[in-house]
Simulated assay, not measured.
Amino acid sequence: MKQVNNDADAVIVTAKEPEDNVVVMSQRDYDAMQETLRIMSNKYLMAKINEGDRQFKAGKGIIHDLIEVDDD
């Protein structure tokens, strides 16, 4: 399990019947995959991302310094 987390590689655990195979992956990778699926299935959000991408490619992007937020 540590190697799965350290290497970010999924492990396929095979069974006699291929439909019974399972995949073991890190929680971090699973969460990232689920978030990606949620974003990609949200038509409104994808439209906003695509519009921003078009604007950036057209040279309309603006670079800003990051604002540090103090959590205290």
Rank of each mutant, 00 (worst) to 15 (best):
I63R: 15
V11N: 01
Q55N: 10
Q34P: 02
V69Y: 14
E19C: 11
D7G: 03
I62H: 15
V24C: 05
I39H: 02
R54L: 14
N21R: 08
I49T: 03
E35A: 08
L66V: 09
Q34N: 12
A15I: 05
E17Y: 11
K48Y: 04
A10I: 04
Y44N: 15
K16P: 00
K43G: 08
N21A: 08
V23L: 11
K16N: 05
E68Q: 13
Q27S: 11
L37I: 12
A15C: 00
V69A: 14
V69T: 09
V11W: 07
D70L: 06
I12S: 10
P18L: 01
A8Q: 10
I49L: 14
D65H: 10
D53R: 04
N21S: 08
T14Y: 14
H64N: 12
D65T: 03
V23E: 07
L45Y: 10
A47G: 01
D65F: 04
I62E: 15
I39S: 01
I63A: 15
R28A: 12
V13D: 09
V13Y: 05
E35V: 07
A32C: 00
I67D: 14
I63C: 14
V11G: 01
I49N: 12
H64Q: 07
N6V: 14
N42Q: 01
D29F: 01
E51W: 08
D20A: 08
A32N: 06
K48N: 11
N50M: 07
N21Y: 06
G61C: 02
V22T: 03
N42L: 02
T14F: 14
D65V: 13
A10W: 00
N6P: 03
F56R: 12
S41M: 03
A32R: 06
D72F: 01
D53I: 08
L37S: 04
L37H: 11
M1N: 11
L66I: 02
L66P: 07
D29C: 00
D9T: 02
V23H: 05
K16C: 04
N6H: 13
D31M: 06
A10G: 09
D72I: 03
A58Q: 08
D31T: 01
D65M: 08
D53G: 02
I39D: 06
A58M: 06
V4W: 10
K16Y: 11
V4D: 00
E17K: 11
A32H: 01
M33W: 10
D20N: 05
D53L: 08
M25R: 02
K48C: 04
L66Y: 14
A32S: 10
A32P: 01
N50V: 02
N5H: 12
L45H: 07
M40Q: 13
A10K: 13
G59C: 03
D53H: 10
I12F: 11
Q55T: 03
L37E: 13
A32D: 09
R38Y: 00
A10L: 04
N50T: 05
V13A: 14
M1I: 15
